[in-house]
Design a binder for these strands. Structure first.
Lengths: 239, 239
DNA sequence: CCTAATGGTGACAAATATTGACACCATTAA
DNA sequence: TTAATGGTGTCAATATTTGTCACCATTAGG
């Protein structure tokens, strides 16, 4: 039996039985007492909280609070979860948001370091404010997740972004801009970008952007964005 | 060098260089050509999409979309992430919320089945509505995550919940109620409960509840909650 | 106090898994 | 045709994991 499988079996058994002795577990997974002890030690290293009671009537007990689960997430998914929780925190305090943060911190820790750096750099471009009550929310539609990679690249490598934009009147234009920031006015998201053709900043509602693509040969520098309203950088929000 | 570390190193190298040959990787991680090939095969089994091109000028290429990360999360953390994304979706469509959903689905799949059942049952108690603009949001504070277990038990095992409640005027009372639903009026959360002492339903703002504990010997049955405003069960929200 | 049942550690040989060397095949571009 | 590449099979060398055994610490019960 594989080490991994044996660990799983031990956790399952502890979850099922409440309390087990090393001898029980050894018999159940078909390994020696010593090996089970080594496995328990490894599981503790992995974060499982296993209480042990020596002496007659003693045994091992798995703290149910510590039962953990592993999931393989793509970077895009982690990214989406991260900004979900970030924007939720932006919208105001919520029950359990600390726990969600803790979960995300763990996920983040498991990411390759360069990806974490990327995510942080992207978060630095996120700003939050209060939505003016004048905006018509009724025609909102979600942004296609498939668009994410182009945005990520445009922001992280500072490449100009080309996309199709449908304005409030339904007119469709093709734009090429320098993405400077993302502005969250819950529940709407805006891309704040410098439009070189118009030599000014423009706000674009994310749900009205389609077919975005970054332009490899069009790098640019970050500009200071003159936000009209009061906004907060997301990284400055209280945790 | 450890197998795990070597796999990580290979993935990092592929991510950094774009294209590498087996020989390059072997030199870089200090292993033989054969071993690297075995590693590549293992990584593919784990879900990494690695394109390969034989022949002159060929090499290996890692599909960046497939880079994955594993994280061990406690059940409470998964729970917090789940309701975060659920309430975010409730607040309106957001970019990437589909991706966040997909990530959560994977996490959920990795949970033990009985926990998933519990989560679903809890989600059935969640309702969403529009917050009246009359509520004063300025004095909000987040709920302590340590309170979660008592709530979970009270909801799932239908035990009465005892807690301390501080009302809008600051007066503190001790309550014992039957938790029937959770109502999300972003960014506020309410516990909707039947108060046996008053023989009526009451709404309690979650951030004003402290020291909750479930009462083991006080089971009850679910009641039909007569919501005053228009609310939507969270499980009926469009995905 | 003694004993039996329990968790826990160290040492070392046996069992098992991983690795490297080598031969070889398939594909591709020059 | 050749050289550079990915890919597979085999087998001995090497590294890791496992079991055995001896022993210690703690606890409950007689």
């Amino acid at each position: 039996m594989n080490v991994r499988l044996r660990h799983d079996a031990i956790v399952r058994s502890l979850r099922r039985n409440g309390t087990s002795t090393i001898a029980d577990l050894a018999a159940e997974v078909g390994a020696s007492r010593r090996t089970v002890l080594r496995d328990i030690s490894a599981l503790r290293d992995e974060g499982f909280v296993i209480h042990s009671e020596p002496g007659r009537g003693g045994g091992l007990q798995l703290d149910p609070q510590s039962v953990q689960t592993t999931a393989r997430l793509s970077v895009a998914e982690v990214f989406a979860l991260l900004i979900s929780v970030a924007s939720m925190r932006a919208a105001g305090s919520l029950p359990f948001s600390d726990l969600a943060d803790a979960g995300l911190a763990k996920i983040e820790k498991a990411l390759p370091p360069d990806k974490v750096r990327d995510l942080r750099r992207f978060l630095d471009c996120l700003y939050v404010g209060q939505l003016s009550p004048l905006v018509d929310i009724s025609d909102m539609s979600a942004m296609d997740p498939a668009l994410l990679p182009a945005f990520e690249t445009a922001f992280l490598q500072r490449r100009q972004l080309r996309f199709q934009y449908r304005d409030a009147k339904g007119a469709v234009t093709r734009r090429m801009v320098e993405p400077q920031a993302m502005l969250i006015l819950p529940p709407l998201w805006y891309l704040v970008a410098w439009d070189p053709a118009r030599e000014d900043f423009r706000h674009f509602r994310m749900d009205r952007i389609s077919r975005p693509e970054y332009v490899q040969d069009a790098p640019f520098r970050r500009r200071h964005v003159p936000f009209k309203d009061e906004v907060t950088p997301i990284r400055d929000l209280p945790r």
